[in-house]
Write a protein that binds this DNA or RNA. Structure first.
Lengths: 192, 192
DNA sequence: CGGATCGTTGATCAACTTCAACGGTCGTGG
DNA sequence: CCACGACCGTTGAAGTTGATCAACGATCCG
């Protein structure tokens, strides 16, 4: 029997028996979302935290001019939600939507509390998750700051070629903070 | 006897007896740094994590053109270090420097491991710390993206007036990703 | 007093956005 | 299975934001 991807992921941070993992799974709901389906709306109470088993999500907001801005992608083995709102059980600042057909494990706030109560070792797991996410976010800030938009774009496609494959160009633009038109332009320039 | 600020901060997330807190303190080193003093250099192995008891730090890097870019400030009750490098015990991407005379509690990586071993409840505390830091970082990303530089500046001074007081203008500029000259310009424009 | 530090001002210019129009491709319904 | 529309990428012209550079002022502190 092959190990569940989520169990494998947890085990890369802390050790968990198969029995414990099976119990832990009961705190979650397995859900499938179709491409373009909405998991969380801005303004909704943020009840759920999502773990991507297979597929791809993005979290975004819509600004005054009506354009979408992606703040985070999540592929296999990433957690995604509006963490501040999830914690406070308040209205989400962001939308979460499936980019591809996606399988997630979702957990409600009260179930996560109960899970942590019963399995304190999972505190350690989530500590690691948040620490990595925060570190990555700071590194991203570094690039957003310092590089020109052109450098930002090529840095991204060089470092995460798998994204460039999976995700449409206009979403990458939305993630990196430039316009689709400008992406076209610098790609054309590069080609020549 | 007044409660130690660090104990107070921990207690806002988890409950800790005074005895336990006194033991926990022994894992830390109390340090004082003068204004402008360096706590961590880019390229150094990142051994320490810093908790600000009193004062103000900033974390920054220096880009190709030789200009400083601040990725994070830390005032009272904030943790600061290059978390990715701290975890991997690798070379830091960033500098950490005191902006004011600052008292910190610093903890080495192996001591933190030992502390968490002995007081598993602190896993929960650090989980909360990282989650908040990550959430805040995502929110900051939101503003960096979406607002014009002018909006970014005024949003910051409106929301964190205490910073605008304590921190020189050129450091705020370095944090927000604009030039000191441009800050001058928009402040002048606003005044008229 | 003299130097270092920090903020200001103005001119020039490049990077990037905005807007409008077009073309290719994919999927869905007739 | 074809046709139509939605979706996505491209192109080019015009306009704007914000960086860069250089010089000057103000203030603080030894």
């Amino acid at each position: 029997m092959t190990e569940h991807p989520f169990h494998k992921h947890i085990n890369s941070f802390v050790s968990l028996t198969d029995t414990d993992f099976q119990t832990i799974l009961t705190f979650f709901k397995e859900q499938h979302f179709q491409k373009k389906e909405l998991l969380l709306g801005a303004g909704d109470i943020c009840n759920n935290n999502f773990f991507v088993v297979k597929g791809c999500l993005h979290m975004y907001f819509i600004n005054d001019r009506g354009t979408e801005r992606t703040v985070q992608f999540a592929i296999e083995n990433w957690w995604l939600t509006d963490f501040l709102a999830f914690q406070k059980q308040s209205a989400s600042e962001f939308y979460v939507r499936a980019i591809e057909d996606t399988d997630v494990l979702s957990i409600r706030h009260n179930n996560l509390e109960a899970l942590l109560e019963q399995f304190p070792i999972m505190e350690r797991y989530f500590k690691s998750i948040y620490r990595i996410a925060y570190g990555s976010s700071l590194n991203r800030t570094k690039y957003l700051f310092d590089f020109s938009k052109e450098e930002i774009y090529f840095h991204f496609v060089d470092h995460f070629p798998e994204f460039a494959q999976r995700v449409p160009q206009y979403l990458i633009a939305s993630f990196l903070g430039l316009t689709p038109e400008y992406v076209s332009e610098i790609r054309a320039k590069k080609r020549s």
